[in-house]
Design a protein around this nucleic acid. Structure first.
Lengths: 140, 140
DNA sequence: CGGGATCCTTCTTGATACTG
DNA sequence: CAGTATCAAGAAGGATCCCG
């Protein structure tokens, strides 16, 4: 019922139902989630492999991200009761379907991050998008 | 030079350059940014229109988001020195190029948020992706 | 090896009040 | 109308220590 109803307007995508976008975004829009998904794209990986593949992540965030993804049904967690504990994580079909979107974002990021960087540098100089006025006065 | 170099591997997308992704993601991965971009998709809008179109946003976040987007060169800000101040925001070409990626995410979200929701509900019951053990154990 | 539980610091965000 | 300036609450994240 609350689906993507057909809007008669021009290009109006999400009427007033921004809700579900924010909901989904709050999960997969997070950087670690994105990186985790992309890292799992090639195939299943173990906890330590993931941690190694995602440089800046802490085990706290990795664990949390992994659990969220598992709870959302985007990945599966398989624990092998071996002597040296081994746990493998793998994308589910649902998770794989997200890959495309993630790739789109990633590709865009790869293609334009240079442009964005220079834009930011410029506005930094011209003071265009200047913000940070509040709390900046911590001259104490 | 740090672009999407061709990797010879299987599906390896981002070598060890997760950096730029996180960088871009930190800006456009944010929910307000996504919503703002999508809201501006149809065409230019004024500040108040944007605020009205994005229900939960506070003027602080709207202003901040708008400035970030402007600084990144994703939108343009045009102020008309009229008696009732009027400022219009519009996507730039760069901003429009992001639309696709945003749409991809949005579409995916629209298509699967229901599925995700039920998955989450299930794991909530089965305790699969259960986290929040800390402080939760007030069962003493 | 794979986490679970904690502590503590920083960043983010919302509510509010004021201005050109 | 279109922001700007502050403040305080809360969430997010990192570093640690510990266990099975």
């Amino acid at each position: 019922m609350a689906a993507v109803r057909q809007i008669s307007g021009p290009c109006r995508l999400w009427p007033e139902d921004n809700a579900f976008i924010r909901d989904v975004l709050d999960r997969i829009g997070d950087k670690w989630t994105m990186l985790t998904i992309s890292t799992l794209s090639p195939g299943s990986l173990r906890y330590s492999d993931l941690q190694a593949s995602i440089p800046g992540i802490s085990q706290r965030m990795l664990t949390q991200t992994l659990k969220h993804l598992e709870a959302d049904g985007l990945i599966t967690r398989t624990a092998y009761a071996e002597v040296p504990p081994r746990v493998e994580y793998e994308l589910t079909d649902l998770g794989r379907s997200l890959q495309d979107a993630v790739m789109a974002m990633a590709s865009w990021a790869a293609e334009h991050h240079g442009e964005i960087a220079s834009n930011r540098a410029s506005s930094e100089l011209t003071g265009v998008g200047r913000l940070r006025a509040a709390g900046d006065a911590a001259t104490t």
